[in-house]
Computed example of a mutant assay.
Amino acid sequence: MKALRTHEVGGPDTLTLDEVETPTPGKGQVLVDVKACAINYPDTLMIRDLYQFKPERPYAPGGEISGVIAELGEGVCGWKVGDRVIAMLGNGGLAEQVAVEAARLFAIPDGVDFPTAASILMTYGTTIHGLKDRGDIAEGQTVLVLGAAGGVGLSAVELAKAYGARVVAAVSSEEKAEVARKAGADEVVIYPTGDIDKDASKELAGQFKVAVGPQGADIVYDIVGGAYSEPALRSLAWEGRHLVIGFPAGIPKIPLNLTLLKSCDIRGVFWGAFTAREPEKNRQNIAELFDLLAAGKINPLVSETFPLEKGGEAIAKLENRQAIGKLVVTMD
């Protein structure tokens, strides 16, 4: 079988398409014929050894797949060959076949295609955990979403709307603003790119405050970090929650006096650790996502697909913050 693998620390251009042996499913595992693998931000970090997990090389990046069960390992119950499934792997997804722990599998709902199915777990799983478990979202609240046109950002727009919130989407271009509006955003702020000095930061904070309204944002969903975090935090309401998701723009330095003045919280959202520590609660969240998908309240935007040999291009596009919605590698 073929797999797109990393052999050395480096960018997407260092990945090579290799011919490797088909894995044999061990006890409690299944062999999955991979049909689609979604690209996520950790994929850009792992191949550069910048992520908290550093798998032994060579390995295929790609942590979110959909496919069909091809073989059952010893002791696997509740699944059969031919079942359509999705799974989170950590890595290994950019390959034609992969061995997966059966406990990591979820059944693909009827009528959902493979690229869409591969785009649900990490983005929407992160966001439902963030908004519900960490953000205490409630109907009628206001949510400011940074990076609102990417896969995670769009999931935040859709889920916040599904929970009855007013959503302000912050994006970097008019093209992305239109995508956020189509996803349900009530208001859009187009923020500057490049260096943001003190004056620009103050101006951006003013834009956020106008957009969220005089009471402030109850929740900031911060996927971006960098110089964008402090202006967003300044727009929080009294006792608001600033949810920390990721840092593609860099790790920010926040003046802690702001948390005192607003009596607000800065809360981390680490979905991967949550799934390991509270697997049953995570399964309940995923089941709720499937219900929302069936009801048409969420719908992952797969903006572009790539063949396996061009998987590095998909990772590069996400790394360069050029992606709108989800980028997916397909194996057919």
Rank of each mutant, 00 (worst) to 15 (best):
I298V: 11
Y59H: 10
L204Q: 05
A273P: 12
V171M: 02
D222E: 00
A177C: 00
V167K: 03
D199K: 12
L121R: 06
I254P: 01
D199A: 15
A149Y: 14
P115K: 05
R283G: 08
V81E: 13
Y41N: 12
A314Y: 01
K326M: 03
G153C: 05
A156G: 12
A60P: 09
A295Q: 10
V179L: 11
K198S: 14
R181N: 00
L258T: 11
L121W: 04
D18R: 09
F53G: 09
V171H: 02
A160S: 12
A316G: 15
Y59N: 06
D197P: 06
P115L: 03
A316C: 12
A162W: 09
K182D: 13
V143L: 03
S155M: 09
V112Q: 06
Y51R: 02
I120M: 07
Q215H: 15
V269I: 10
V112S: 07
V212D: 07
E319P: 14
K2W: 11
G312K: 09
L204Y: 05
M88Q: 15
L256M: 15
N282G: 02
K132F: 15
T22L: 14
C264S: 15
M46Y: 11
Q52K: 12
A170Q: 09
E158A: 02
A205T: 09
L159D: 06
E178P: 10
E96G: 08
K35R: 14
R84A: 07
R134P: 10
G78M: 04
S173C: 09
V328A: 06
D18T: 10
S172H: 06
K132I: 15
A99K: 02
I251F: 10
Q97W: 05
K262Y: 03
G246Y: 04
K2N: 14
V224N: 06
I69Y: 02
G246E: 04
L15W: 12
D136L: 14
G164Y: 11
A287G: 09
P307K: 03
G92Y: 03
N282Q: 12
D33R: 04
K182S: 15
L146A: 05
Q29C: 00
A156H: 06
R181A: 00
V34H: 00
G151M: 00
E174H: 05
E175Y: 07
G78A: 07
R104E: 11
K161F: 08
W79H: 06
D199T: 09
E187F: 03
E56H: 14
R84T: 07
G62A: 11
D291I: 15
E56M: 13
K198C: 08
V98M: 01
S172T: 14
K281R: 15
A217P: 01
A169I: 04
L105R: 14
Q52V: 10
G268K: 07
V100D: 05
G250A: 01
V179N: 05
A117Y: 00
W271L: 01
R234N: 10
